[in-house]
Design a protein around this nucleic acid. Sequence first.
DNA 1: GCGCGACGTCGTAGATGGTGACCACCCCGT
DNA 2: ACGGGGTGGTCACCATCTACGACGTCGCGC
Lengths: 337, 337
Amino acid sequence: MVTIYDVARHAGVSAATVSRVLNGHAKVDPALAERVTSSVAELGYRRNAVARNLRKSRTSLWAVIISDVENPFFTSMVRGVEDIALAAGYSVVLCNSDENPEKESNYIVAALTEQMAGVIISPSSNRVDDVKLLLDSGCPVVVIDRELHGLRTDTVLVDNERGAEQATAHLIDQGYRRIACIGGPRWLSTATHRYDGYRRALGTAGLSLEPSLVRFADFRERGGYDAMASLLDDGAEPDALFAANNLMTVGAMECLVQRDLAVPTDIAVVGFDTIPWADLIRPTLTTVSQPAYEVGRQAAQLLARRITKPDADATNVLLPTELQVRASSTRRISTGE
Amino acid sequence: MVTIYDVARHAGVSAATVSRVLNGHAKVDPALAERVTSSVAELGYRRNAVARNLRKSRTSLWAVIISDVENPFFTSMVRGVEDIALAAGYSVVLCNSDENPEKESNYIVAALTEQMAGVIISPSSNRVDDVKLLLDSGCPVVVIDRELHGLRTDTVLVDNERGAEQATAHLIDQGYRRIACIGGPRWLSTATHRYDGYRRALGTAGLSLEPSLVRFADFRERGGYDAMASLLDDGAEPDALFAANNLMTVGAMECLVQRDLAVPTDIAVVGFDTIPWADLIRPTLTTVSQPAYEVGRQAAQLLARRITKPDADATNVLLPTELQVRASSTRRISTGE
DNA sequence: GCGCGACGTCGTAGATGGTGACCACCCCGT
DNA sequence: ACGGGGTGGTCACCATCTACGACGTCGCGC
């Protein structure tokens, strides 16, 4: 392992001068600088980031703690973070909490002990302790996707309520009346807001909320499948479905396929969140698409700003969704007459 | 920031003793250990991983350098790595090279300067220099998914040739004769092996390889779309398609959908690699599924072994694929008679 | 019973690689 | 000749680990 001292000796200067050349902070005689750079090249010196981090008591790593790597929303989001982070000279460490508060907690402690420069997190629970720990330790944090009450942090959220309202209103508009809802875990703000949007749209249209048409699942494929099965088996007789995230939509669809129910003739479907290759699924799926990449970009920008200005006021960004109407929710063929 | 010295003072012992208690290496009087642990708890001490890493000149991070975060194969693979890594006390840093050799090179240098404990990489090119740099620096490396010639490293690969051969043979078996192939970048071993498998199956069946039925693209959705369009526009008149990865399969399918071609009646399709929710796509897609999670698991196990035994012989794991027959490749309806 | 030796536990101090404040020196200009 | 600006070296520091040494205790033997 070649150190800065080896370079200094080889170039006939002090280690401090090598450091200055490498960091470009102070002025160095061009002739010396030249000698240093050529020595660096000749010896194949790479500076030891760990030692540097220790001295500066801060690394150049960002931790991005997401709740599910296999959910396309998060991978797309991560791409957004990455592009900004790299441009700003940071590397991104992806941590997958798997919707497991304990794993999440471990990652947060790791982020602290590893002195990460900042954290972007989509909390897997509404427990505030962990994120509070980060804040109290002075670690810059941006919360994304899910709201966390009682904390003054930068956040980048999506207008879940409005997105869900539009989706439900669209179904009502298309003539559906018995609209079922498969909601997410009630402790997640995304889930409650989407449920609120669903209720609001019903209310606006003068429809009453029927508890038998509502199920709450876990934002996973399996949960969506089971919820759909339960809706069908319990005789709720829905003529449409609003599913509160992408994976549950897929699960519900799989249940419908298995039971030979036609979409949208037997049941119309609108899903929340982008589904990759939605165009290939038959029928094509109407979705409320989220600007995942943009969520990542904005979160990264907020984090970069927070690092340079730790005491700035908290910024809360709310991004709009977009209803993408496809075949799974087209107008109901009027039965009877 | 509370250091080991604060704990030592609070517990009335030396910092060395605190270190010993924390690491459990040497024997410490139980009474003292008790005082130390309670002081740790009382002061809320968390050890500084950066300083620790400097001292041990090695971190507890694994870099996983993949070529596309948005490809489900890699996310699933990462899950496999994660599960093993966490159990072994390592954290996983995910790096997305985006099939870009320059980005990849940067990540490799970062892995070295950050003193990562090991690297798992799916090389984005056949350039050997970067990985050689890691090896020469004594950094444990496991190469996955893609072969790299001239290097003695642990590898975990999938039997691409055999998988492709089975897929093509299956199409032949189903009565298709003009089987097109959309291959991947010719500098990637996965691509060449899959192409070899395609050719082998043709040869075995006594069919000749028709260059007009072959296209090479970039393993991306767009590339698959364009290649399919080109096959159709150039009058190659394929009656079936073998696409060499998941994203290109999706792209090709989208092209077929757009042109109102029926699958498998007009053209049968077999894709390589798992496609999430293949069941929802109409028709359901026949695929050669790869054991992505298992690739990750085995790679992680090899890496852990390599870290403890740096001089062990290189292990090369070859995992089998599995042909999953679905609707997109069912027997051709015999035309005419 | 006392002394010596051995073993075990704990503290001291140095090492890890890099940074940057501070200081010294040199040269030039006035 | 003196002062100032610019350039480069010295050294303390970051937090932790660990080799080595010292000290205390216990046991055994005389």
